[in-house]
């Protein structure tokens, strides 16, 4: 079972890396587009995997970080193109990414410090509430399109590459995903990762052993938020559009689905989870507009199976 899963993960990673070649040979740029989306979603899920998978903390507001990262690209780009807010206006991609990661980390630091005071059900609910706060805040930003969202009319400028080229955008997304997955693997086996997973198993024992569980969890939460915000920044470049819908709680539910389906805490799990989600969505939504029906049934099946395995 374990070998079967690891094999699938490696095969998927290889297939994703080979996607530019496949898309060129088959002359189907559509495949590259799907692969880019997959890489970005996998990156977002990789962020959640650190807090949910390794830390065992059910963060239900993670879509907020995705939206924060996306708006961190769209807002400076908007001002760079149309004037106003000179202190923020910029078309520099490095600035955008830095802003996205910093904003995601800062929001995680503030909300995490409050949310981690609670546990269990209350933690689920308070992270959900913080996520909704971001959703409604973005809806109220009339200057940035309100609930209509904001188009990114000019993609960020980066040295040596052009994000208008789908190949470059895919390359960047894939490279960042690879870096984050490698980082997760290192993290999981480092003392910090061990402390995090051990706290998920028995927080009281870890406290008795002298570990500051709160700080470890807060650090993991900030890391998780920053990574998902990075994915959000890429999503803004990919879709050339951002909207409050990116922060909707149903999106957070989808991210959770990816992490759980891929195997919570597995390093390459977010990749398989995101792949399953993208394939399902593409497949089912082309087949029927009621694709939420089979998707929902699958979610129920996954949850029932997971509960049975845990029992």
């Amino acid at each position: 079972m374990r070998n079967w899963r690891a094999g699938l993960e490696i095969a998927l990673l290889a297939a994703l890396a080979a996607m530019p070649v496949i898309a060129t040979v088959t002359a189907q740029p559509f495949w590259l587009d799907v692969a880019t989306r997959l890489a970005i979603l996998a990156l977002a899920a990789a962020g959640l995997n650190i807090i949910l998978g390794l830390g065992g903390l059910v963060s239900f507001g993670h879509a907020a970080f995705y939206a924060i990262g996306a708006y961190a690209v769209a807002i400076p780009a908007h001002h760079a193109l149309y004037g106003g807010a000179d202190w923020l206006a910029s078309s520099n991609g490095l600035f955008h990414v830095a802003l996205a990661v910093a904003a995601g980390a800062l929001f995680a630091l503030v909300t995490g410090a409050l949310a981690l005071r609670t546990k269990g059900l209350h933690f689920i609910m308070i992270t959900l509430a913080f996520g909704q706060m971001v959703y409604f805040l973005l809806n109220a930003l009339e200057d940035y399109g309100g609930d209509d969202g904001l188009p990114v009319d000019q993609r960020s400028e980066l040295p040596l590459m052009s994000l208008d080229d789908p190949l470059h955008l895919f390359g960047l997304s894939f490279a960042l995903l690879a870096v984050v997955l490698a980082f997760t693997w290192r993290l999981k086996n480092a003392p910090f990762g061990l402390a995090l997973t051990a706290s998920a198993r028995n927080a009281r024992r870890m406290r008795a052993a002298g570990l500051n569980v709160f700080t470890v969890r807060l650090a993991a939460y900030v890391l998780a938020g920053a990574i998902t915000a990075l994915a959000g920044a890429l999503a803004a470049e990919h879709a050339a559009f951002v909207s409050p819908a990116m922060a909707e709680w149903t999106r957070a539910g989808e991210l959770m689905f990816m992490v759980i389906l891929g195997g919570a805490g597995r390093v390459l799990g977010p990749l398989t989870g995101a792949a399953a989600f993208v394939v399902l969505e593409e497949l089912l939504s082309s087949w029927t507009v009621y694709w939420h029906l089979p998707f929902g049934l699958l979610l129920i099946a996954v949850a029932l199976m997971q509960a049975r395995r845990a029992a």
């Binding site: 029906l293 699958l298 997971q306 509960a307």
Partner: peptide, 22 residues
């Protein structure tokens, strides 16, 4: 799912919400 993890309950009832919506 009674007495099972909250995570499983959240996933299942989220799925149910989608099913009923569809």
């Amino acid at each position: 799912l009674y007495g099972k993890s909250h995570l499983a309950q959240v996933l299942a009832s989220f799925g149910l919400l989608l099913v009923i919506g569809a």
